[in-house]
């Protein structure tokens, strides 16, 4: 589903150039859930943004669903395959757009018809009733906002969902609800996940495999079972596991 190799991402021009990601390589199979973990500044979110086309200064190969991707330009077909959920639900919804406006715009941009029925369906999918359709973001709680953001991502009926710390801004009880929702959606829609998180327990709950990142490089790719056993091959991985116990 997703193949990344030799990925370098940088910001700025020399001499101020900062290399955010160096030589990253991993692949995610159809239907798999893959985690990217690391501390802030390790480049994990940067990888997601480069895949999504939000950063154009990168080199290497990114292959989504068998098709090579270049630069920051993506065609409509790409957005029908890949969607993203952002970290902070308070920043990822337009403050002046109602839920209805957000979802109908997403559906229209994907060229979908029958918008009324689809919006109802999407809201049900993410566990929000019809009653939420005409609310503005300031009338929603953090968890409800994140559900709307997930519904927006699902509007295009994608197959690969990029999740950028989707629960780190939420309370634990709400986090549990969202994590459950993500698990259900994956089973129902046969989605593939790439999830970025600093929380090993969250990644352990959602993912099958994960890559540990440190200072822009992937230091280790391991299975979640190995993570549970605390069996990291690298010192850094073991350190991270110990710190989050």
């Amino acid at each position: 589903m997703l193949n990344v190799s030799d990925l370098d991402v940088w910001f700025g021009d020399p001499p101020d150039r900062v290399d955010a990601v160096r030589g990253a390589a991993f692949s995610v199979a159809q239907g798999e859930s893959f985690g990217l973990v690391g501390e802030s500044g390790s480049g994990k979110s940067t990888i997601l943004r480069a895949i999504a086309g939000l950063i154009d200064s990168w080199s290497g190969q990114i292959e989504v669903d068998g098709r090579q991707i270049e630069g920051a330009r993506r065609d409509r077909g790409f957005y029908k395959t890949v969607q993203m959920v952002f970290q902070d639900p308070y920043a990822s919804l337009h403050p002046r757009h109602s839920v209805d406006a957000v979802l109908s715009e997403a559906l229209r941009l994907q060229g979908m018809g029958d918008i009324d029925r689809r919006i109802t369906r999407l809201l049900e999918d993410v566990g929000l009733g019809k009653g939420f359709r005409f609310r503005y973001p300031h009338q929603l709680s953090g968890g409800q906002r994140q559900r709307v953001a997930i519904a927006r991502a699902l509007a295009a009926e994608p197959r690969l969902l990029l999740l950028d710390e989707p629960t780190s801004a939420l309370d634990v009880s709400v986090q549990a609800e969202i994590l459950n929702l993500l698990k259900e959606l994956r089973e129902e829609h046969g989605l593939t996940y790439v999830m970025v998180s600093h929380d090993l327990a969250v990644v352990g709950h959602i993912c099958d495999r994960l890559a540990v990142m440190q200072q822009g490089e992937i230091v280790e790719i391991m299975s979640v079972d190995a993570l549970r056993r605390g069996a990291g091959e690298q010192d850094y991985t073991r350190h991270l596991i110990a710190a989050s116990q």
Partner: peptide, 13 residues
Amino acid sequence: NADYIAAARLQGA
């Protein structure tokens, strides 16, 4: 650079 603009971009806007 807000996330909601990035999100709209990802919808193909």
